[in-house]
Design a protein around this nucleic acid. Sequence first.
DNA 1: CATCGATAACTTTTT
DNA 2: GTTATCGATG
Length: 768
Amino acid sequence: MNSVPLSQQASARPPSGGETGLPGYLKGLNAEQRAAVEATDGPVLVLAGAGTGKTRVLTTRLAHILATGRANPWEILSVTFTNKAAREMKERVGAIIGEAVEGLPWLGTFHSIAAQILRRHAELVGLKPSFTILDTDDQLRLIKQILQAEGIDDKRWTPRHLASLIDGWKNRGIRPEKLGEEDRWTFADGKADVLYRLYQERLKVLNACDFGDLLLHNLTIFTENADVLALYHRRFRYLLVDEYQDTNVCQYLWLRLLARGSGNVCCVGDDDQSIYGWRGAEVDNILRFETDFPGATVIRLERNYRSTGHILGAASGLIRSNRSRLGKTLWTEDDPGEKVQVRGLWDGDAEARFVADEIEAFVRSGNQHNDIAILVRASWQMRAFEDRFIMLGLPYKVIGGPRFFERAEVRDAHAYMRLVRSAEDDLAFERIVNVPKRGIGETSVQKIAAAARSAGVSMSEMAGLMVQTDEIRGKARTALQVFLRDVERWRAQADTMRHDELAEIILDESGYTAMWREDKSPQAAGRLDNLKELIRSMGGFDTLEAYLEHVSLVADLDQASDGDEVSLMTLHAAKGLEFPLVFLPGWEETVFPSQRSLDEGGTASLEEERRLAYVGITRARERAIISFTANRMIFGRWQSVLPSRFIDELPPEHAEAKSETGYYDAGPGFAGVSEPADPFRSAYDSPGWKRFKAAQESGARRDPGVIEGKAKLIESGDNGAGGFKRGDRVFHLKFGYGRILVADGAKLTVAFDKAGEKKVVSSFVEKA
DNA sequence: CATCGATAACTTTTT
DNA sequence: GTTATCGATG
């Protein structure tokens, strides 16, 4: 997923070892790394700082246990957080051992392993082994239905809110009956426990569970069935946990139960890189490790093989402001390199221009776009960069972003398949009875739902009954008849046909593909491509079940990682990656640290923001460039903003403010530049200055008169190269259809139907 | 029952 | 600035 070529991924570059008589895989590890590999028995905590060769230690350790015959591949439980990490580990262990690692059946993410276990013992928690795993979307719709059924105002108490509460409880291992008195009152005037229970009951009826249930059900099974737990105690002789700082309470309890068997549990992590507190991760888990597992060996990896001295110095200085941490001191033998740069800009557009200019200069001096990443706090910040890059024709890719399996068209297609596979799947039924529009409206669906629920049968079944009565009339009735008959037919075909072929037929015959083909919106083409991609990726699985399991546990499809492109992503998505040049824009109070972290959560959440900053800086190998602006458009409104406190916390000896324009020199107190009068601040606050800068900086963009003036001038020069000329209709992947206003060589000014007037490079559009 | 327009609510971060 | 939702109209 989203990967950068291997050469760019975290990789230790230890000194070449001169040891002889050692197994090859141990050579080249430094003393601490080797200790971490060889401490196989008992509880071990490896505190692996950024860039200290964590993945290498983990994979070598696994290889070591196998190579020394301490355990068979199926006796090792290795858990990671992301599928990417799991995949990488499989690959690297395979490379060391030199054979296929299909034999590591218990290497995977927490969720995929929990799902595996749950499928084997589903009956113990009242599910059938074929249970479906709901995604957030299904979950929300289910909760909404429950709220409506209970007569709760779903505006005042949003499904989203309840979903996040339930999620939080599950993360902490709390089942409905154990919900505390005070938690009850967190939602709908004391009804929280009732709603939580109803939700769980409804899941059971649907033979489904949500993400949090995967682990929570495991916990229930283990605590209530000693024999089952004993089975896994016997099975797992070694436990290996990656990114331990990201575990939540439920995952921690799960691990503790399993570790009670062999006692050989090795957790690798970095408390300074704990950035998932908002979804239940407990830094405490790693901070408490030594008390939780008495007699634990703790090994610190502090030698960094990734970044220059200044980058490490800046990052270390920053993270020192955090109070709750175990404390590590990263060091390197590399050059100090160049200081971390800090740049102040006027607004977001200026920042994007600055970054793009720096990128072009960097590439001109012989570097690759692939060597560069821009890391932002939140995805809305990406827009300014994308706009600029599109205009310049600068190649870039967004890592993370909207995910394939969560796209509406993909989920619709899945719903069709789910319904064909199982008539019981009410959520799937509801989702697509009327997609594409068949004339079966809200009222009909509600009628079916109500009747089905009171009769205790599935909606499909109830619909089948109702078309034979006068319950539903007219257009809706015939449409429903046709729909049910179609589903029946597909279901009959399912036995004799490959599942990907069938999927194609379903999408065709249901009119779903046609719906998008007739859609003229800019995204329609992309959606059709996604459907094609979906069919293609289904082909890679033996059964429909295997495919559906995959999509519910894997967040994304592998992105083709070819092409020389700048990477644009959030700080969260950047964890584990590294780049020679890293841009860290948007370092302003309320943006980073985010408003939310300032409003709620107190010190803990501010410290998490700081860790995020730390993660950002430590992604850089050679250069890190931090920037902030004086004005930022937030919610479509211009606000003047202050430089982030994190900038003040950078040690002056490792960071420097660079300024060319002269209107900004240094942030308040930054870099030891003491400016008692603080001219910068006062200048910024002066309205006159603002008006002046606003006029000067952004006149061209914000004043339509200027643009038109320029446009007219060039227009008279008429057509440009590339076969595009004024008046041509064009299509752009992001902006949709539009008409060319100005063609100036490869630079086009296009009035897009939806997106408005944009400047783009001709290679980004095609004739419509 | 569907379509269009207005309005309100909103943005972290994701297995 | 956008996207989801709601209400009035065809």
